[in-house]
């Protein structure tokens, strides 16, 4: 059976659009929420800027519970919450919500780990100048860890592309779904190959951009 590209082409374009939308929305919203959660984890830890054992333990446990759940299970298990927030547990919107939720917790750990690499002496110097914890959070933490953070977010981008391939499980579409429905299930290796190639290009572009940005930031610092 020859591949009918005339029919498939619009579907493929739609799928690329869905993947890009899901990944972009996840990186922006999940990236921001994950940054906040990561900063909260970092500053409340023992010896941190505003140590708070209770808050830290709660956040830590929640992150540890959510993070190891395989995304294919998470995306279905979070269904009731998705319905409450998005109104449906099917479609690209619902998949994006699940992606954002999962990514927030994953990103928070990466943010926390990168902030830990900041020299405590620099934070002490800021405290010695009379800087408040709020000022240290807003003007010092992210700039000082920017290089590693960019690399961390680049890593997250690749992970989110990977996760987004599962969106088909709840009718979210995207390139992963395209590859399975039109390629794998129809024994059409050409279609699978095209989907894979597009994802590879996407990831390469992201990794290349992230590396360049990080190098530029790290060179000055």
């Amino acid at each position: 059976m020859a591949t009918d590209w005339n029919t498939l082409w619009p579907v493929l374009l739609d799928s690329v659009g869905q993947t890009l939308w899901m990944v972009a929305a996840t990186l922006v919203v999940g990236g921001f929420l994950g940054l906040l959660l990561g900063i909260a984890l970092y500053i409340t830890r023992a010896g941190g800027i505003v140590p708070n054992r209770v808050v830290h333990t709660v956040l830590n446990v929640v992150v540890n519970i959510v993070r190891p759940i395989p995304f294919i299970i998470f995306i279905t298990a979070i269904g009731p919450v998705t319905i409450a927030v998005v109104g449906t547990q099917l479609g690209t919107g619902a998949a994006t919500f699940a992606l954002i939720a999962a990514a927030t917790f994953g990103i928070s750990r990466i943010v926390e780990q990168n902030l830990v690499t900041i020299d405590p002496g620099v934070i002490e110097a800021a405290r010695a100048m009379g800087a408040s914890p709020w000022r240290i959070v807003t003007t010092l933490l992210v700039p000082e860890a920017l290089g590693p953070l960019i690399l961390g977010y680049t890593f997250v981008f690749v992970a989110v592309v990977d996760m987004s391939a599962v969106a088909g499980a709840i009718g979210g579409g995207g390139l992963g779904d395209f590859a399975i429905v039109y390629g794998y299930q129809r024994f059409d290796w050409a279609v699978t190959g095209v989907a894979v190639a597009i994802i590879v290009v996407l990831v390469q572009v992201a990794q290349f951009t992230g590396n360049r940005l990080a190098r530029r930031v790290l060179r000055r610092g």
Partner: peptide
């Protein structure tokens, strides 16, 4: 160790 801000 000077403790300068490397980002500035």
């Amino acid at each position: 160790q000077f403790n300068l801000l490397r980002s500035r």
